Simulated scan of single mutants.
Amino acid sequence: MTRPLPSPDTAPAAPSLDRLVALVATDMAAVNQIILDRMQSPVALIPQLASHLIAAGGKRLRPLITLAAAQLCGYQGTRHQKLAACVEFIHTATLLHDDVVDDSLLRRGAASANAIFGNKSSVLVGDFLFSRAFQLMVEDGSLRVLAVLSEASAVIAEGEVHQLLTTGDLATTEAQYLEVIGAKTAVLFAAAAEVGAVVADRPEDEIQALRRFGTNLGVAFQLIDDALDYAASEAALGKTVGDDFREGKVTLPVILAYARGNAEERAFWHRTIEDLDQTDADLANAQALIEKYGTVRETVARARTVGDAAKAELARFPDIAIRSSLMEAIDFAVSRGY
């Protein structure tokens, strides 16, 4: 049982990343070459496994944000290219580790690296990519950049551990949930945007505005991810629908449905989420309860509100093409079906 997300109140043309991609295409070509160069190793399994994940595609939204932020701030050099590659390496490493923790079999519509190469290889290659990211940070030579990206790496790890602790715990509050997604997802978006302004040597208020933009974009992005796990089609999502439910993850759609449910419905959530005692029919039952209480729609509405906050942070910057493309990227993140 799958249910489409509510149609966004937008113009007929769906928001996309196409304009953003076009505006940073030259820089992104350089980033892709850096990624290819830096994932090489005489240990054959490392480039083989890393190539598998990178070849699976993905929007590369985080490095796009770094490149766009630098362009928005008028930066003319090339430092942002290595830093965008660094951001992508951090993200890719976390994906490898996450799929092992979650025992995921699909990633971007293809078999996950751990499904093909095994958990041990995936964890160790993730460590390799983290190391490559730190090499790129050091090569940049800026202590401010190193502080931003290393702090983000530490917070992401904390967020993943925090999520592990809240898994299966229906006492998790909305505040705790938001703290988890702020750490495990939003902090890398924030750092990606911030370093783009740092390399451009912009005033602190602009640096912090871009950091807040990234934070809000990241929160909106994760809210939609969590809504899609109950509402998307598997083909569109590129991973197994209902993974969060099967793993007992307590996301906002569940938190709201549990809070609004009657005693029988709460007993259902306790059995399926806390006890992980699930039958084949339980995902459909969970989706029905989420539909009954409108919690996917509410999660999407909250993502739109956070997206509007991200747009507000861009208002202080010149009204140029790259700013418009970042505005559209926010709309894309909120309205996407995958």
Rank of each mutant, 00 (worst) to 15 (best):
D37P: 10
P63G: 02
R79V: 00
I65M: 14
I34S: 11
A70P: 10
F130A: 10
T94D: 01
G74P: 14
S112N: 05
T66Y: 09
I46E: 03
V123T: 12
H52V: 03
M39E: 01
D98F: 12
A68M: 06
L72F: 04
V43L: 15
Q33V: 02
S122R: 07
A111Q: 11
N32D: 13
V125E: 13
A44F: 06
L83G: 05
L129S: 05
G77W: 10
F117M: 01
L124A: 05
N119A: 08
D127P: 11
N119R: 08
V101K: 09
V123A: 08
G58E: 01
A110N: 13
A50P: 11
A69W: 03
H80Q: 15
A113V: 02
A44T: 08
H80G: 03
T66D: 09
L53T: 06
Q71E: 08
G126V: 10
A93S: 14
Q71A: 12
L72Q: 10
S131C: 11
L64W: 01
V87A: 11
R38S: 01
S121M: 11
V138S: 10
L53C: 04
N114Q: 09
A110F: 07
L36T: 10
S131M: 05
C86K: 07
A84R: 06
I65V: 07
V123Q: 05
A133W: 10
M137Q: 05
L96G: 06
R108L: 03
T66C: 13
L96M: 15
I46M: 08
L106E: 12
V123P: 13
A44G: 05
G58F: 14
A55H: 08
A115F: 11
L72S: 07
L95C: 12
A110P: 03
I65P: 08
G58N: 07
G77L: 06
P42G: 04
A68E: 01
S51Q: 08
L64F: 01
F130L: 15
S104Q: 02
H97T: 09
K59I: 02
Q48K: 09
Y75C: 09
A115Q: 15
R62L: 00
D99G: 09
I46K: 02
A56I: 03
Q71Y: 00
L83M: 04
T66A: 12
V125S: 12
F128W: 08
L136H: 09
A115D: 11
D102M: 12
F134V: 15
I54R: 07
L72W: 04
V125F: 00
